[in-house]
């Protein structure tokens, strides 16, 4: 919930060819059960399709799942696409990201990186923190 009692809206998507969506679906259910409204965009999205959906759906947070080692390219591209659209929406990356790459991603503007084995409570807490840290993205 946001401070005014409304559900947090979060968009979940994967970029490109990669079809590993087990984690994304587990996270979707987990956030639903934590009271969030999950706009599920699923597989084979582009940074542009994510941005358009984020605008129309007015989500507070964008979650991108990565399993194809493209995070160092696609992560910063996603952040840039959000900024180019003039949006203030935090981007969280989940999936297989080596710990060594996390500082690079954070420096590029990724709000947080949730690696393999992250407890579901931590995922939910991170989404709440991201929504709270960007009040411009909620009413």
């Amino acid at each position: 919930m946001t401070p005014d009692g409304l559900p947090i809206r979060i968009l979940l998507a994967k970029l490109g060819f990669d079809g590993h969506d087990r984690g994304l679906k587990v996270i979707a259910r987990s956030l639903r059960d934590a009271g969030c409204e999950v706009v599920y965009l699923g597989l084979r999205q582009t940074t542009e399709s994510v941005v358009i959906a984020a605008e129309q759906e007015d989500v507070a947070v964008i979650g991108i799942s990565m399993h194809n080692a493209g995070h160092l390219t696609l992560g910063p591209m996603m952040v840039q696409a959000v900024a180019d659209a003039g949006l203030d929406i935090p981007v969280i990356i989940g999936g297989i990201v080596p710990a060594a790459d996390v500082p690079t991603l954070k420096a590029a503007g990724i709000f947080d990186v949730l690696g393999p084995g992250t407890p579901l409570e931590t995922v939910v807490a991170t989404v709440h923190a991201a929504a709270a840290a960007h009040p411009g993205s909620s009413v």
């Binding site: 979707a28 639903r32 009271g35 999950v38 599920y40």
Partner: peptide, 15 residues
């Protein structure tokens, strides 16, 4: 629909 228990929802109509 929203979950009657938690108020959350998975909205998948776009895809």
């Amino acid at each position: 629909p929203s979950s009657p228990l938690t108020g959350g929802a998975i909205l998948g109509d776009r895809i």
